[in-house]
């Protein structure tokens, strides 16, 4: 065979490829997505700002879904319709300025609208100042666990010093010479109050981690040397998992923490039970 054969009739293959695209990609893709909604989907939202994020997610899903279906149907249609047939030639058609500008400008407008939509949500989620009555918690990632700290009655966090870290007696590395540190409460479980905004100040001892609570739609890396504050409002009581979403070493997969969202009363009762971390054992 010196030359590839010129197919005068490729309609059969064209139909097969078109069916592949429609069947596998469009029907399969949409069907699998519908099937997944009941099983493998975003967990029910449990924070105030998460509602806006979910709404943005669903609008993006609809817009991209329409484009996904539309482009694939067109692709399948063209593949089927323009498979080689008969002895004719293809159309010598290679420029249509108005058509090209149309499909440059329409996506540009659509994307500009998306920029505006998510810009508004982002401003609400990350740029607004936290309310004055927000609970303040210091959350620190380490290899491979989370540690939370509450400021205690004085309302101030004491100094921490990595040189004072002791896995058993002082995991947070509180500095006993700072009076503000003496009443700090340290807990392996993060306790939050339903309906009360919380400012989480994220730190890390050594490597990057990422504070991820799926139900809160919250994810923020913790960076050694930095304190990064995020704030949100839990809206549902219950227990949730804190996952680490940034590779942090061999225990990354098991760096599981716990959040308990409670009523104000239950939270107050829990906090009252806690002894300051530096208090001598009774």
């Amino acid at each position: 065979m010196a030359n590839a054969p010129q197919h005068s009739d490729a309609r059969g293959t064209g139909l097969a490829v078109a069916l592949l695209i429609v069947g596998l990609v469009v029907v399969g893709g949409v069907g699998a997505t519908l099937y997944a909604t009941g099983r493998w989907w975003l967990p029910p939202v449990a924070s105030a700002h998460g509602v806006a994020i979910d709404r943005l997610f669903y609008s993006t899903l609809v817009i991209t879904g329409v484009v996904f279906i539309g482009v694939h149907v067109l692709l399948a249609l063209f593949v089927w319709r323009f498979a080689a047939r008969g002895a004719g030639r293809a159309v010598y058609f290679h420029d249509h300025r108005r058509l090209e500008l149309t499909y440059t400008i329409i996506p540009a407008i659509a994307l500009a609208i998306m920029v505006a939509m998510s810009g508004i949500v982002w401003a609400r989620v990350r740029l607004g100042a936290p309310p004055a009555d927000a609970l303040v918690v210091d959350v620190r990632g380490e290899q491979f666990a989370w540690l939370a700290r509450y400021p205690g009655p004085d309302g101030r966090f004491g100094r921490v010093d990595p040189r004072r870290i002791d896995a058993r007696t002082n995991p947070m590395g509180l500095d006993p010479e700072d009076p503000a540190a003496r009443d700090d409460v340290v807990s392996r479980t993060l306790h939050l109050v339903v309906g009360r905004p919380v400012r989480v100040q994220l730190r890390s001892t050594g490597v990057l981690h990422s504070f991820f609570v799926p139900e809160f739609r919250v994810k923020q890396d913790t960076v050694p040397g930095m304190t990064i504050e995020i704030w949100f409002t839990p809206t549902r009581e219950g227990q949730f998992e804190i996952a680490c979403a940034e590779l942090c070493g061999i225990g990354h997969y098991a760096m599981r923490g716990q959040v308990v969202v409670q009523s104000p009363e239950a939270f107050a009762a829990w906090l009252a039970q806690q002894r300051p971390a530096l208090a001598p054992a009774p």
């Binding site: 490729a10 692709l75 323009f82 080689a84 030639r89 293809a90 159309v91 058609f93 249509h96």
Partner: peptide, 15 residues
């Protein structure tokens, strides 16, 4: 993407 689609339009596709 749309240019590729337009390339296929009116083509004589050899699969």
């Amino acid at each position: 993407t749309f240019n590729w689609l337009a390339t296929l339009w009116g083509a004589r596709i050899q699969f």
